[in-house]
Write a protein that binds this DNA or RNA. Sequence first.
DNA 1: TTGTAAGCGTTATCAG
DNA 2: CTGATAACGCTTACAA
Lengths: 387, 387
Amino acid sequence: MLTQNHYTKRITLADVARVSGFSISSVSLVLNEAPLSRYVAASTKEHIRAVASKLGYRPDAAARSLRSRRSHTIGIMVSDISDPFCTLILQGIEKALHPTTYLPIIMIAHNQRKQFGRHLEMMMERRVEGLILVANWLFGEFDQLADFRKSQIPMVGVGRDLTASRVRSLQVDNEAGGYAAARHLYDLGHRKIAVLRGPSELADSDRRWNGIQRFASEVGLPLASKRVGQLPAADDPTSGFEGGYRLISAMIEQGVEFTAVIAFDDLTGLGAIRALRQTGRYVPEDCSVIGFDDVPHAAVNTPGLTTIRQPMEEMGSLAAKWVLDSLADTKPSHTATETSSLSGTLHLLPPELVIRQSTTRRLIDIRTAPVTRLGVAAQGRSRRKKE
Amino acid sequence: MLTQNHYTKRITLADVARVSGFSISSVSLVLNEAPLSRYVAASTKEHIRAVASKLGYRPDAAARSLRSRRSHTIGIMVSDISDPFCTLILQGIEKALHPTTYLPIIMIAHNQRKQFGRHLEMMMERRVEGLILVANWLFGEFDQLADFRKSQIPMVGVGRDLTASRVRSLQVDNEAGGYAAARHLYDLGHRKIAVLRGPSELADSDRRWNGIQRFASEVGLPLASKRVGQLPAADDPTSGFEGGYRLISAMIEQGVEFTAVIAFDDLTGLGAIRALRQTGRYVPEDCSVIGFDDVPHAAVNTPGLTTIRQPMEEMGSLAAKWVLDSLADTKPSHTATETSSLSGTLHLLPPELVIRQSTTRRLIDIRTAPVTRLGVAAQGRSRRKKE
DNA sequence: TTGTAAGCGTTATCAG
DNA sequence: CTGATAACGCTTACAA
């Protein structure tokens, strides 16, 4: 009344109290359905609620969290929102957080160091109660992470191994994925397999490669170095398309022979397909291609891209559950059994081979293979004449 | 000191004041670089700042916004985070907001009414100062929108026409897009053009169709109804792939002839390609396909999908600028020249034809057409023999 | 130049 | 069962 506000008059608890004729505290109790509101007369409750909604009362989040010292928010730092990999993880996080009282505060770093730092800073200021780091590509160490650690705020990383920054992390088992990819192609009869490794500064790249090598050595399959390419360093996850295209084009130009390609990720695989197609080769008839990730692109391509699937949504949900669990555990007064013992942990989830149409038996065997092996949506029915 | 907090002792202004030996207000002035801090001795400033950073002081966002009555946040409601369409708009918004002091608060509705409402509610409670609605698919009217209007909080919708809910909106010119698509195919010599319309409950669907019809009637091109299909209602934007696949499969099965397809969106176009391929037809040799949107899928498909591009990032930035402008205009005391006069406005941005490899001259003309017309990355060099 | 003090809208403790 | 009242951490007149 005194400080008559210009335009946006906000409805506060005091207003509801005044209009309803009850005290602020009663109103607060009722509207929050606090335990003590049990003793409030039903008629009173009803009246208060009616007034509140008639007035359009909405609690002020800032005041509430100032007083209660709880923000009820969980910070989600996403390195790149245009990458479907991150996006799907986000979806999983969202779903897990939805039934809780926690609100995800999403911030986007656009793969830029400065933004990471700035946003971590804001998350601290907003007093997030937990932090999930969704990283698809590079992710360095930041001062703020140390502060988060000190504040005992539960943190978990998804997508990348952030244990070096002492952040508990969640990731697909890249080694197993590489192994599965190699095995799939080998089982289809391929022996000359080209491998497109990821950029060297990505740890995943090595892990997948290790898996491939492990399988190869188990079955005695040689991996000629002329058939192994490596994507250049890049700070953009979609650069794989271009990279795959270039590497395969180069191999073809140099006369390197291969009947199958293991690509670092789906985009790289699609780039490979483009290169093959442009030189008159068809996938999968002339060459099989397998990707990694199973981003949406893979399924809608023709031919559908066979790939090693990362359970992205599941990863997101699991990460969210971890922080929720930590949050629940945090109540016990003494520091419990050292939650920090988990901080160095890296948890691996199993990948899954998704067979679509981009991989098939070596051509020489193809006539004898049952058509149904190619799957429902196989596009190979009217096979191109061999010239 | 009194309420010795168990674990998370927060550093407050009072702490900095005590340690530095100055008063809370001085510390506040200095750390905020407030106008009045001009009169503070340089040495004092330095000292205060040093203490603050040594102590690891971080202002409490809740307290700050409670006191200042400003949240410095802009709410972004995204209908579906897994849709690249939304994601790219988001990117644009982010970029425009980044240089400002406003923090985007992103909420994801997963295309579910209930979530929309719930999240709008939370945005009100968090006292967002502006609201951007990023909708790719359906978006109904919500009670909360009325409240936002009442609170004079600037709102803008991107992607869908929300003027029915009296929200100023920003959208691509769908009619022009449809027109351009039809024209492109016509110019390539196509006369039997199949059209896959979007779901009837999407207004965009009609607009694009109107554009197509307008062009057709201008050049006297008949659009036989047997060549026109319509996607079924669906609440998932990726359903277009399936839909396009089905519609084209059906047309083929019924012996309908066509040499080109205008798809409602890119996913629908990719579905069409899948159907064509599965019946032994190649794109673009046997049939051209044009999409709409230019989501990332379009570029990495082989053949690259020709499409009508929506300037999604630009749309996002523009939307953000609009709310920032409204925010700036809001200062003048008297209600200015009715900002609300804009509330019914629908702003259209021009689409852009992006020619890739999925469209080409009608086969009969193809031998005479210069190869360069197909673009740099044309995959048609080793053309399949006609059987 | 620096300090004092009055709130911002809630919640929670403690009397009545 | 209901009502004062004291914080929560910060900003900002106004005093000194």
